[in-house]
Amino acid sequence: MKKKIIWGAVILLAILHKDFWWWDDTTIVFDFLPIGLAYHAGISICASILWALAVVYAWPDDLEAEAEGE
């Protein structure tokens, strides 16, 4: 179940990557960062957090044994 949630979240993140709602927006955040760029930097940070969760909750424990031919 945990694995399914993780992979579901990866798909959701890939969908959220298509931020067509900011397409024409030139709003500046933090005084220097265009909102379209700030949003995608956020996507990168979320990706790292998500992959950390994947390593904890969806890690294939049998890989080492499989590599040793067990």
Binding site: H17, G36, L37, H40, S44, A47
Partner: peptide, 17 residues
């Protein structure tokens, strides 16, 4: 700025996958 979304944030998701 769209260049970042084209390659960088997409790569963050896809490369690790």
């Amino acid at each position: 700025i769209g260049v970042y979304g084209l390659m960088a944030s997409a790569s963050g998701i896809i490369h690790s996958a």
